[in-house]
Simulated assay, not measured.
Amino acid sequence: MQILVDADACPGVIKEMLFRAAKRAEIVVTLVANQFLRTPPSPFIKAIQVSAGFDVADARVVELATAGDLVITADIPLAAAVLERGAHALDPRGNWFTRDNIQERLTMRDVMDQLRNSGVETGGPAPFGARDSKAFASQLDRFIARYQAARKGA
């Protein structure tokens, strides 16, 4: 199991949590982005820089994702693609993308896109805050604990 991060838009505080978790749990965390990423030295932390272009980083994340991996992303189509590969998808606010909710989220994304394209002001997501960080940390810790328990039981 590895953790893959759609790192271009991932908040810095989330990356820092992932760096600490990688070292503590000895799980490989791989950040994928269109830009250079500074990471702490660790055998458990990798960064992959892809060329600029529409969804190039997303395509690389999908290519790397395997069943059981955890993908950190706020990108709904990317989440849908990795779920199809058997990976888990968690957004930086601590919300899970699942087979049960992904279609609804894709539909809502498309509706909002249509509204924006027709000139309707839809706003954006609420600012990322401490509550979001705490929710993410809680979900990440639970996921890693389940993974480690399963690994010990195997």
Score class of each variant (00 low, 15 high):
46 K>F: 07
70 L>F: 02
2 Q>P: 01
9 A>E: 03
74 A>C: 10
150 A>K: 12
57 A>C: 04
86 G>D: 06
21 A>M: 14
41 P>A: 12
13 V>A: 14
128 F>S: 10
142 R>C: 10
26 E>I: 02
33 A>W: 07
136 F>I: 01
43 P>T: 13
137 A>K: 13
130 A>G: 09
151 R>E: 09
1 M>K: 04
133 S>K: 13
42 S>Q: 11
88 H>C: 13
45 I>Q: 00
115 L>I: 06
83 L>S: 04
60 R>T: 12
62 V>R: 01
59 A>K: 11
124 G>P: 08
115 L>W: 03
21 A>F: 12
55 D>T: 15
41 P>D: 13
36 F>I: 04
2 Q>T: 05
31 L>E: 06
29 V>G: 01
5 V>R: 01
105 R>F: 02
32 V>K: 04
142 R>Q: 14
100 D>R: 13
138 S>A: 05
13 V>T: 15
47 A>G: 09
50 V>M: 03
60 R>P: 04
117 N>Q: 13
150 A>D: 14
111 V>K: 02
29 V>Y: 03
86 G>H: 08
129 G>D: 15
79 A>Q: 09
106 L>A: 03
149 A>K: 12
15 K>S: 08
51 S>C: 09
33 A>T: 11
83 L>M: 04
114 Q>E: 14
65 A>Q: 01
103 Q>P: 00
80 A>K: 05
